[in-house]
Simulated scan of single mutants.
Amino acid sequence: MSDTDWGAGTVAVVLVPDERGAISPWDLYELSVASMVFGIPHADLADPWYELRVCGPAPHATHGLEGLAGADTVIVPSVPDAVVEGRQELPAELVAALRAAAGGGARMVSMCSGAFALAAAGLLDGRRATLHHAYATELAARHPAVTVDPAVLYTDDETVLTSAGAAAGLDLCLHLVRKDLGAAVAGALASRLVVPAQRSGDRPQFVEAPLPEGGADPLGPVLHWALERLHEPLSVDELARRARMSPRTFHRRVREAHGTTPLQWLLQQRVARAQSLLESTDLPVERIGEESGLGSAANLRRHFTRTVGVSPTAYRARFTR
């Protein structure tokens, strides 16, 4: 979706049956994820909301493959295991429809092994992509032109996005809402779905370190404390002290849990705060820099543009026109 088309649009989800015509449970799960995010109107958050098309074989679908034509976003959930294992070819008409949709300007998205379909259409060549880490070796072997990253939750190459399995698909869907309708709308929707408002795409797919006994999160209280004070100077040493950890241990725990360093986590949260303020207030950019903890207007512009891809002024314009 281009800047001029900023907002909700048509989302087409493509179901890929196995050789018997059956849809896998994972496919149906990921369809339900997309349906929860894009198929249930939330007019109080954004009006119009998305239009959802389910494309594929009856009785699950509302459209055939012709439903991909004109869609703003095309999502391919998991494909059958036989496709992943090389025992089943993807239908030629599906591959052609994916190529045509991409050529028509649609944003192409895969969940988990749906990446095999995008790869078969040549849409991942020269790009970084992810999927469930269990399938990464097979995808890389069959499609060497794809840079497969099995460690992250999702990737965003603007026009092509991919996610790992299960909950990562929901993370990616909320990421799409955040790109289309802003951080405030995505956060409100996440609250309704009772899930985290934002998990960075670079967060690891799995955490090797076990949780403490009792399931307590030792980082939760200190990170919540930091979120309430993003406008203040915050150091890693201070956060580590409040977490009752050494700076080295705190750094390691944050990286294990969030896939990034404490300083990068702070930067991500401050940019997210700036997004929310740009969407919901008319504060000048200088003030937003202060309120988000990014400092001067120049510093805000530098970090915001590098993270979000557009300047603060251009981002705000999308919500005020």
Results as ranks from 00 to 15, higher is better:
residue 107 R to D: 07
residue 241 R to P: 06
residue 256 E to A: 14
residue 209 A to H: 07
residue 46 A to K: 06
residue 2 S to W: 03
residue 320 T to S: 15
residue 275 Q to K: 13
residue 235 S to I: 12
residue 293 G to V: 14
residue 234 L to G: 02
residue 75 I to Q: 04
residue 99 R to W: 12
residue 237 D to Y: 15
residue 200 S to V: 15
residue 79 V to Y: 01
residue 260 T to Y: 02
residue 143 H to Y: 15
residue 59 P to C: 15
residue 230 L to E: 12
residue 230 L to V: 13
residue 133 H to Q: 05
residue 210 P to R: 02
residue 218 P to M: 01
residue 5 D to I: 14
residue 309 G to F: 05
residue 233 P to M: 06
residue 229 R to F: 03
residue 230 L to W: 14
residue 72 D to E: 15
residue 38 F to E: 11
residue 262 P to C: 05
residue 173 C to E: 14
residue 156 D to I: 01
residue 46 A to D: 07
residue 18 D to H: 10
residue 60 H to Q: 09
residue 248 R to W: 09
residue 9 G to P: 03
residue 219 L to H: 01
residue 321 R to M: 13
residue 225 W to C: 08
residue 188 A to Q: 13
residue 109 V to M: 05
residue 167 A to S: 10
residue 173 C to I: 13
residue 158 E to H: 15
residue 74 V to H: 00
residue 171 D to P: 07
residue 143 H to A: 12
residue 163 S to E: 00
residue 208 E to R: 13
residue 66 E to K: 06
residue 40 I to E: 13
residue 2 S to I: 03
residue 84 V to I: 11
residue 307 T to Q: 14
residue 279 E to T: 14
residue 103 G to E: 13
residue 196 P to L: 03
residue 54 V to E: 03
residue 225 W to Y: 13
residue 151 A to V: 15
residue 92 A to S: 11
residue 276 S to M: 14
residue 55 C to G: 08
residue 256 E to C: 14
residue 157 D to M: 14
residue 169 G to L: 09
residue 121 A to Q: 04
residue 119 A to I: 05
residue 175 H to N: 10
residue 102 A to E: 07
residue 283 L to K: 11
residue 78 S to G: 09
residue 38 F to C: 06
residue 18 D to K: 07
residue 261 T to V: 08
residue 194 V to D: 06
residue 215 G to S: 03
residue 301 R to V: 10
residue 132 H to L: 05
residue 213 E to H: 03
residue 2 S to R: 03
residue 103 G to Y: 13
residue 21 G to V: 11
residue 96 A to H: 10
residue 11 V to R: 01
residue 27 D to N: 14
residue 178 R to E: 06
residue 76 V to A: 00
residue 167 A to W: 07
residue 115 A to E: 00
residue 58 A to E: 13
residue 81 D to A: 09
residue 321 R to S: 10
residue 8 A to P: 04
residue 64 G to W: 01
residue 97 A to W: 08
residue 222 V to K: 03
residue 232 E to D: 10
residue 173 C to S: 14
residue 226 A to H: 04
residue 152 V to M: 00
residue 287 R to W: 05
residue 156 D to C: 02
residue 308 V to C: 05
residue 18 D to E: 08
residue 282 D to T: 13
residue 98 L to C: 08
residue 114 G to P: 03
residue 152 V to K: 00
residue 84 V to A: 06
residue 15 L to F: 00
residue 295 G to I: 09
residue 189 L to S: 04
residue 106 A to Q: 00
residue 147 T to G: 05
residue 52 L to M: 05
residue 138 E to M: 07
residue 97 A to N: 07
residue 19 E to C: 14
residue 281 T to I: 07
residue 255 R to M: 08
residue 33 V to T: 12
